[in-house]
Design a protein around this nucleic acid. Structure first.
Length: 112
DNA sequence: TGAATGACTTCGG
DNA sequence: CCCGAAGCCATTC
């Protein structure tokens, strides 16, 4: 074990993701930038991959910069992620979030 | 140590 | 925003 630092990084991602308002979404880059790792957007996705160990991590609220449900394939079902978003009032079409610009939630601005 | 991979982003067309 | 290619960064083999 000696991987507490990494866990800290994940914890930050979880913290931000957990603070995403209901019916809203954000992007990996936004979180990464908020954490000071704008160039590690992929790591945010990696953290999300590990988010399966956490229950309060609405990974379905985190999508790529265009609102595309790139991670839906990592969920249990094939369309579980979309259903979760729609369950929150978010309209999803062809694995993409409708009016993503409106639903986009930037932690660096909203959470600040 | 080095090559491969990936839940991304940015640039140019 | 769509398409193609390159870049970045951390984890894994």
């Amino acid at each position: 074990m000696a991987q507490q630092q990494e866990e800290n990084f994940f914890d930050k991602v979880y913290d931000v993701a957990a603070q995403v308002p209901y019916g809203r979404v954000t992007s990996y880059g936004a979180i990464a930038k908020f954490l000071g790792a704008a160039r590690s957007a992929r790591m945010v996705g990696w953290a999300m991959n590990a988010s399966h160990n956490r229950d309060d991590v609405p990974a379905h609220r985190v999508v790529n910069r265009v609102g595309l449900l790139t991670g839906k394939h990592h969920f249990d079902g094939t369309n579980l992620m979309q259903q979760l978003l729609e369950s929150e009032g978010v309209i999803v079409k062809e694995n993409k979030i409708v009016d993503f610009a409106k639903l986009f939630w930037d932690p660096a601005k909203e959470l600040l």
